[in-house]
Design a protein around this nucleic acid. Structure first.
Lengths: 196, 196, 196, 196
DNA sequence: GATGAATGAGTGTTCATTCAT
DNA sequence: TATGAATGAACACTCATTCAT
């Protein structure tokens, strides 16, 4: 009776995610996806325009979930300082991705974490996924604290880009340092970027 | 007298670069390259393993040239402060890419500016391209100055990743700000990251 | 009281005609037709075997209407000479198709005007559309006049084939002459073919 | 040493013709053609743009050959009267097609005999196939005779269209008459159309 | 070293048709 | 009667790679 997402659509998303993270988007064909989902090829086109639409939907859903989880977890702590809150979330995400390097590769190979990506944002909006973003958290945090951040959007943007572009190499290749050694530098950099 | 790269190889590199920046790597076939270079298709395989090898070689060569040019230009100025030297180079590169957005796309869509990328670094080494890197400049600069930078490699790495990941969107999409408005924030961030 | 064609069937015929003349038969899918008719896909198969059945029905109905209109219009004139009557009808049809080149393409690309086409004639019979054909007009005309036409069916057949095969190129491509310049030659040819 | 048409290209043309006449152009896929020709699928695209290019080439070649043969045969006769020459050629073509109804279908289903078709004419020109056309024969014939034909191009055009559109049904379906019974009517019609 | 004809696995996409509801 | 989700065979077309010359 209740509105359930079609089984087939769900299967396709599941299989696509599995294959994308296993073999990469480029090396996954639509044939692979429908084989794995055990549906007809035409069924794919009933729900998605092409491989890239399903990819973007997956990035939006998965990254939204990850950030929401991070924020939920933050809420359970006593951390009040905004800078430390940001660092907490960054660490939460890093730790999660450290344990899921496949997901890490999937995210980073495909349009960063998507927080500022137009195509992805479109999907967020289409699916009402935008309740608790880092940005709203950050903006509220600045209001509530007595921090003076000149242009908070830009600052957060720089932090996210810095984190995402450095951590990929650090987690995957231990370059320029293994992630655990790199973290303090990153925390330090974040503190400098936030504080005047 | 010295070993000159074969005419054919040179032609292929030239044509590949032209086509990659015109149409993108994905939409350039090996057929396109050999047609433009006016050599046989088999000849391509005499010099390169595949399309991606020629792409990586081009990124290494072109980015090396850009940085060398930036450093040469810096030498002609009177700037002595290391932080300002880094900012000068960053601006030099930004201004260059602003005028060559196609080159920008080519670099950024393909493995960042490549300064810390393994595949690219392999090529640097294979071709002895590593004389005047930003890193040696930076390290020397710190020695000569009385700056206290704890881990200069990591700091420079973070600066480069921050610059490259933010500037692409800024130059191409004016997001989160047009590049000229974004620059002061970037300069500010670089100053914070370098200075204790 | 009498058997009215189902609303759905009527809708499908209407939509199919619209789409066939807009985009051509080949480029119109059954999906297009049922979308336009606002009925379910399965409904199509309730009334028609496939796309080509609906096409043939449309050709039969539309060409029948066009000839009937031509004959009605002829009746309002004072033309008594049979040859001139045939020419009048030919011109009526040409003028109509000149104003509806899309319909022209639809007719001609699909089995001539259908007057002697087996599949189409089958439909004429199935639908009792055969009251006022050119053939009966022509045969009656010969009886009533004192013309000596050896084999009137064959003669009319040749005239119709001549007209239909030449006029398509003339109206659409102005080849070998624009239709208005071509008409006198055609009239002349018809006169020769009818008169001994 | 001498310029031979590639074996593969020749094979493809041969197989395509065989399959087109057996099953029709629409029901022949490129896969069918390359299977029959025993070459790789890519080889097809080395020589032809698509199915329709190979079709048009075949129509041009085959129809050119047929008309040339007809004219050669005419030269061996003593027929001097232009009208009778035209009728001779028409009969030659009809008789040939009567014996090759598959070729007949192939021609007629695809753009008439191609004498006035733009796409086909392009191929004629590209291949220098245009030495002895019916048109040049007809024009010369009129010059040499003392016939008064107002617009010979248009007249010949009408004759060819009349013949081709009527004979198809006559040969294939015996409608409106079997071809041998229809011929006299056709001859008669041709005589009327040529003579003032 | 240099060539380019030949290959065929692989791709994304379409669409007539079925059938459980 | 009416539906439309599901299907999968079929399609045209691409292109990296090979290899005989």
């Amino acid at each position: 009776m209740c509105a359930v997402a079609s089984n087939k659509e769900e299967s396709l998303l599941k299989s696509a995610f599995k294959l994308f993270t296993e073999k990469g988007v480029k090396d996954t064909s639509i044939q692979d996806i429908v084989n794995d989902a055990d549906v007809g090829k035409g069924t794919f086109y009933l729900y998605f325009k092409d491989k890239y639409e399903i990819r973007d939907i997956l990035i939006a859903k998965k990254s939204n979930k990850l950030f929401n989880d991070a924020i939920k977890s933050l809420r359970k702590t006593e951390i009040k300082d905004l800078t430390e809150q940001v660092i907490y979330i960054v660490d939460y995400v890093i730790d999660y991705l450290k344990k899921n390097p496949i997901l890490l590769k999937f995210f980073f190979k495909n349009l960063s974490l998507g927080l500022y990506n137009k195509a992805i944002n479109k999907i967020y909006e289409d699916n009402g996924l935008y309740e608790n973003t880092m940005l709203t958290l950050f903006l509220k945090g600045i209001e509530e604290s007595n921090l003076k951040v000149k242009n908070p959007e830009v600052t957060l943007y720089m932090i996210i880009e810095l984190v995402s572009s450095t951590c990929f190499n650090s987690i995957i290749y231990d370059e320029p340092l293994p992630i655990e050694e790199f973290k303090p530098h990153l925390h330090n950099a974040i503190r400098k970027l936030i504080n005047e």
